[in-house]
């Protein structure tokens, strides 16, 4: 049960949230100029790192806002929480803190 720091509400239990998967995925367009390969990539191809994952979260049972965070896929440390519209931040590849 992660504890997630919602940018609006502060720390809440994971049960109030829903994970929206990998972030920073741009919807390709216009629809008549996108190749099948590009569209398949957008629909189905996702990163699967051992390390920092930049993902979207929704505070579904709270303020209902979407935001981003960087989570380590092994330790589940949440290093950065940032706005949905903000760019992907730099996260050090250093030793994971507790």
């Amino acid at each position: 049960m992660l504890k997630i720091d919602c940018p609006f509400c502060g720390p809440r239990d994971e049960a109030e949230f829903r994970c929206g998967g990998e972030s920073h995925i741009q919807r390709p367009g216009p629809h008549d100029a996108v190749s099948d390969a590009q569209w398949a990539d957008y629909l189905y191809m996702r990163q699967n790192p051992l390390g920092w994952h930049f993902e979207r979260w929704l505070h579904a049972a709270g303020c209902r806002q979407w935001f981003n965070l960087a989570r380590h896929t092994v330790t589940h440390e949440v290093r950065v929480v940032y706005a949905m519209t903000a760019p992907k931040p730099q996260v050090e590849a250093t030793e994971v803190r507790s």
């Binding site: 509400c9 809440r12 239990d13 049960a15 109030e16 049972a61 709270g62 303020c63 209902r64």
Partner: peptide, 14 residues
């Protein structure tokens, strides 16, 4: 609920 609200608090929660 797991939320801990102060006296002036208002929030949606599970």
């Amino acid at each position: 609920t797991s939320v801990s609200l102060p006296v002036s608090g208002f929030t949606r929660t599970l």
